[in-house]
Design a protein around this nucleic acid. Structure first.
Lengths: 257, 257
DNA sequence: GCCTAGGTCCCGTCT
DNA sequence: AGACGGGGCCTAGGC
């Protein structure tokens, strides 16, 4: 970690240019307004904000409250720096879509550049993907005798989460949800079922920890089934087996169709 | 804007406690690991990161790259600060859902508190709502002779974006999209139409700047129509009239049924 | 390149 | 309080 901290007055353009050239991360705190033009358009009147300019060409503007940034530009943006009289301008532009973000400072309370080394591994558990892996390893978690033919079966409108056979050999289409299964999830499953020949041809199963309220009625109308699946149980299955040595793709390879 | 910047060694717990008590915003840069447990679970190994702790009880952890935070806790969290030997701990807990985020620092490169005043107004233009207002003001933007009976007509499955009559007196149900109309949008419109008596009873119109690729076929299958509506045009209509003085609800009030 | 689907999505709005 | 839909959503994975 190196650190750059020039004087605020003349430092702005110099420091910012240096940091961006050297691909450093810059922290700014100051009074500014923000104008965005692109897919939509926004204006933010003057106020005190925190700005992060990252080495990958992303920029994020935070107000002193709220989880989400008020304005931003994703990685890959190109920055332009200018001093306009008493004001400092920082502009971030990207193509595809063509968008521009302009921050105009009247005061800069802090500006500092950092060379940050971050190679730490991030891992997230209890995702929908992990639930799918667990059900592929132990299909009985869905119902006794269930066999997975394919995770991620492509059908014309999109991708079925799990596709398999029940113990009586009927085809089963499973829509998997990590959270409560809601209306859009039910509709998605119904769409898949129609494209696979309708309810006569396949069973439609919603697998989730629970159902959203409005979803229950809709599900019944459409003749779909609900199977409770506990994300924690799925996580347990994965951690208690040597599943890491056997990838999902191996399982797919073992099974034809 | 006031500023707090104590020495790093003993300052961590003191400064952080002071800032949180006084509801100040704190910027931290340091080497840390992060552990999250709640709806899901995550671990992030040691590395250099930027941490924002805001006055409303939100915390955001940023890696030196990427738009999105790697870890966070939304507003309303409660913070706990501790020094554990050589390490500094910052924990953010919230109920509903029960979640906990723990940041463990081995090094702190910068810690600084700010009292930020931000009352600047933020406004986003050309939202779907504004497009709706524009079409309500100038229904000809959809097609000549179109009349709006109701914006936001409630039907059993949800809300129709626009409901009106065409120049020949047929009922028209409009699904409005600010971006390309995609498959879910088409399906939603279809659902509404069925609940209003099907295609024989009403025209189904998708109004959007363009169609997503898969959407075209689906739309044709379902016998729906597409009408191009340009968001920029809508913005022009709104900015060229005294629309800000007349709210959407006034318009709804003026019309019965 | 576009499209599909997930997210600790967050967030407002309405029942 | 839960449910529902939007977002400049962003991001990853397929084709």
């Amino acid at each position: 970690m190196e650190r750059l901290n020039l004087g605020l007055e003349n430092g702005f353009t110099t420091l910012l240019k240096t940091c961006l050239d050297q691909k450093k991360t810059v922290l700014l705190v100051g009074r500014c307004k923000v104008d965005y033009v692109g897919r939509a358009r926004s204006t933010l009147e003057y106020g005190d904000r925190i700005i992060l300019v990252k080495e990958d060409g992303s920029i994020i503007v935070h107000r002193p409250y709220g989880y989400q940034p008020v304005n931003w530009q994703p990685p890959g943006s190109v920055f332009h720096i200018k001093k306009m009289g008493e004001r400092y301008l920082l502009k971030a532009v990207r193509r595809k879509p063509q968008e521009s973000l302009e921050v105009t400072f009247t005061h800069i309370y802090m500006i500092q550049g950092f060379s940050l080394k971050d190679e730490g591994k991030f891992s997230l558990h209890v995702t929908e993907l992990e639930m799918k892996e667990a059900l592929t390893l132990k299909p009985d978690l869905l119902e006794p005798g269930f066999k997975v033919l394919r995770p991620e079966k492509p059908v014309p409108p999109g991708f079925v989460d799990l596709y398999g056979l029940d113990k009586e050999g009927r085809r089963v289409v499973v829509e998997l949800k990590r959270n409560a299964a809601d209306r859009p999830a039910i509709l998605q499953l119904y769409k898949y079922i129609e494209s696979l020949g309708g309810r006569g041809a396949v069973r439609g199963v919603v697998a989730a920890p629970c159902l959203a309220k409005g979803a229950q009625r809709l599900m019944e109308q459409m003749g779909l089934e609900f199977k409770r699946v506990d994300p924690k149980e799925c996580a347990k299955v994965l951690s208690s087996t040597d599943w890491r040595t056997r990838s999902l793709s191996e399982y797919m390879g073992e099974r034809t169709v």
